[in-house]
Design a protein around this nucleic acid. Structure first.
Lengths: 195, 195
DNA sequence: CTGTCTTAATTGAATGTTCATTCGGGAGCA
DNA sequence: TGCTCCCGAATGAACATTCAATTAAGACAG
């Protein structure tokens, strides 16, 4: 599972790159094959169909994202530090892999997502637990963890998209400020002061 | 412009509905025609191609969104009140028109968006001005309006998606709290207290 | 009001292309 | 001999788009 056959990996990566440029549609198997340096038929040795290729790419990337999140967490850091690290992990992952962001966004807003919804997502559970911890330890406002998780993740995605547009220069200071905004909004401390 | 021919409108609305269910691809012209109650050829009387149908649908919906934003703004309300109203306008628009949200998200993450990027967006300008006002009047933190706008809009979208998943019951109180989180994070007041 | 002419709207079968998928076979290996 | 991996031409279905033909809608003269 970890060490995917070279060919299979090449097919996945090619698909990813092509979907960013040509879209979900507009990416024929023949093109994937060419880019991956294999014959069209070979793809069907590794994947049942185009659909299942898309699905596998999705879980392949999601696994990667989980890895990124995991690596960002230092167990001896404070909760707030881990919160910031989590946000930056997402932001960095998406900005340095724009095709991943693009693919995810296309996927979750397509009918494919419906079919994948049933599968419980390890990433969601991970985030859920993280935000639950923040609430239980009294550092985050008592909102459903699912909501907090969506807001934080969505926030990082939003900013990654701003970066992607490229019209704006995002200095590190800007990023810090945006996470700060997010943290300030979600933190219990702010809630108490403002009320 | 306002009173589009019935047929044309029917074609646009049918496309919207079908894209939500079948995706951007997976929605052949023949299907659009059938749903709209016209012949395939008729579509080409109103639209140059499938692509231009998609583009026109995009600006048609964007115009609608602008309308929604405009109507949410009462000139005699305080800035914070207008901020909340803006957020709720987006949230309500997206939750009561899930196919619009779905279409927008598919569109902006597809290669189509690249081609539409050049056109200056009235909606963006509107939001830009709104957030600039908040910054200039010292109520919002001094961050690029483009960023604030993206964060606020993205936040509303994130929550609309949570709603769309349907796993969670979102009471009005939850919504209030989420906007509050957003406002608290972006407001200058919070910034001063926390520093 | 009626008939004639003009233009716009509409149709849906026919066209040609694109593309996912198949399959018969070849190469390397045990 | 059997097995896995791989090839790429061939197949057939799906689809965007075209177009010749049909109908509706005005416009204007008598």
């Amino acid at each position: 599972m970890e060490n995917l056959a070279e060919k299979k990996k090449a097919i996945l990566e090619s698909t990813l790159a092509l979907v960013k440029v040509n879209g979900f549609h507009g990416t024929p198997m023949s093109m994937v094959a060419k880019k991956a340096g294999v014959a069209a038929g070979t793809i069907y040795h590794y994947f049942e169909s185009k659909d299942s290729l898309i699905f596998e790419l999705y879980s392949y990337l999601k696994q990667q994202a989980i890895q990124v999140v995991r690596e960002s967490q230092k167990p001896d850091a404070t909760y707030q530090e881990r919160f910031f690290a989590l946000w930056f992990a997402f932001y960095t992952y998406y900005t340095s892999n724009p095709s991943v962001l693009c693919f995810f966004e296309q996927f979750v807003n397509s009918p494919y997502a419906e079919k994948a919804k049933s599968i419980p997502s390890e990433l969601d559970e991970l985030l859920h637990a993280f935000f639950e911890e923040g609430i239980n330890s009294g550092q985050l406002r008592p909102v459903a963890p699912q909501i907090l998780s969506m807001l934080a993740h969505g926030n990082a995605i939003s900013l990654a998209k701003v970066y992607g547009i490229g019209k704006l220069n995002l200095a590190t200071a800007d990023l810090e400020l945006v996470v700060q905004i997010l943290w300030d909004g979600m933190s219990q401390k702010t809630s108490e002061i403002n009320s």
